[in-house]
Nucleic acid binder design. Structure first.
Lengths: 225, 225
DNA sequence: CGCACCGATATTGTCGACAATTTTGTCTCT
DNA sequence: AGAGACAAAATTGTCGACAATATCGGTGCG
């Protein structure tokens, strides 16, 4: 069966989603070549559509293309993942600060609700649920901050580092480290304290960066030779 | 004659540059429709190439596309320009901080040289030269900071707001305002003071945002009705 | 035995044509 | 005359085929 089907119009857009999912979920491993003809057959679409989709994914940073040499799944090194997180650090800091300025009473309740759910998930050992709440929190903060541009930037960066992100979420003990950081962000935003919110967001991402390095060292002990 | 010619291979890449230039230099005004067939004739390229180029420019944020309704030049509103500058503020801050950590003695000399040239350009009233030095400074700082990801983000954002940026550079009195800010960034980086460098970069961009608002109000007095 | 040259194969880049969709203009009916 | 429906034009989305380019394997020469 072909991985993803879609409604009639705009086949390319669904192809982009299908290929993106295949990359994110690991069906296509890093550095794997993506031959247009093969994808065309696999997803039963024309080569032009595949080509357009590859173009799009290249600009999202998930695929690398070299002139006349084709496309392959981009492998994000640890150093690159750190760089990405550093940019995320400052941009999420901006969003948190803006959110602190603009948040409404209703949204405060919502954010605190998320915080409560996160506490519960961690104490229950619900790693998957916590990960989803994590994403929800970050998304809501961006929405509250009303930063369209920042949101676009962050979406792109998140997609690029999703593999590292996932590995991190599965690391034992990680949730109990990040929970208080998340709660600090929520508190600062709910108190309309922009500076504190930015600091908290940065502290959190700094911790993520440190954890990234740690997890990588643990899983790549010396050098797989 | 066709606007841009190019070497044999990879016609699309040169088309992207040609259309981008046309947008940036104002040959294509904001909200102007970009019909594939017309561009195809104008640049004497196939429609497929034009299509690929428009895809690329869409992902750069210079063109907006709606499904089955074609592409048009994106009009960046003042609010959007401010948002873009806010993101730039924090990311350039990051780059400045990293540059302060990593700068070498040789690069310090180079940066100070740029500072000297800027002073000269301002005192000579050389607006264009100052603008170029400005760009050169920002670029060098990013390179010294060795932030690939941040550089990509900033390149994209700069391209989107180039029109506002240009109008700002032409504003009388603007250079003498921004010069000391630039010099402060240079000083902080050259003293390896990451925190001060980030603060200086932010202060500068904050000033740019304020100027953006001011210039816009001056040129759109009430509301063209 | 190694290296450079050359041809065969695989893959991408480009093109023109056709199908699907949206927009525009016109005509009728109330 | 105005609103709605229908047809025609314009434009985009998709497809298959051809040309250009890179990669791989074999052959001859030093």
């Amino acid at each position: 069966m072909t991985t993803g089907d879609a409604r009639r119009g705009e086949e390319t857009v669904s192809l982009v989603a299908a290929i993106r999912d295949s990359i994110v979920r690991g069906d296509f491993v890093p550095n794997q070549r993506l031959v247009e003809a093969d994808l065309s057959a696999q997803f039963s679409a024309s080569r032009a559509s595949v080509r357009a989709a590859l173009l799009e994914l290249t600009n999202e940073g998930l695929v690398e293309r070299v002139q006349n040499r084709g496309a392959r799944v981009r492998a994000v090194s640890l150093d690159e993942a750190v760089e990405i997180c550093e940019v995320r650090m400052v941009v999420e800091g901006l969003c948190a600060a803006k959110a602190a300025e603009r948040i409404t009473a209703k949204e405060i309740k919502e954010l605190k609700e998320i915080g409560k759910s996160m506490r519960k998930a961690v104490s229950n050992g619900d790693v998957l649920g916590y990960s989803q709440l994590n994403q929800q929190l970050h998304r809501r903060v961006r929405e509250i901050g009303e930063q369209q541009t920042a949101t676009q930037v962050l979406d792109r960066l998140r997609a690029q580092s999703v593999r590292h992100q996932f590995r991190l979420a599965m690391h034992p003990g990680r949730p109990s480290t990040s929970l208080p950081e998340h709660l600090a962000i929520i508190d600062a935003i709910c108190q309309h304290d922009a500076e504190a919110a930015e600091r908290a967001a940065r502290t959190h991402l700094r911790s993520v960066i440190a954890a990234l390095r740690e997890v990588d060292q643990a899983s790549t002990p010396v050098l797989a030779r």
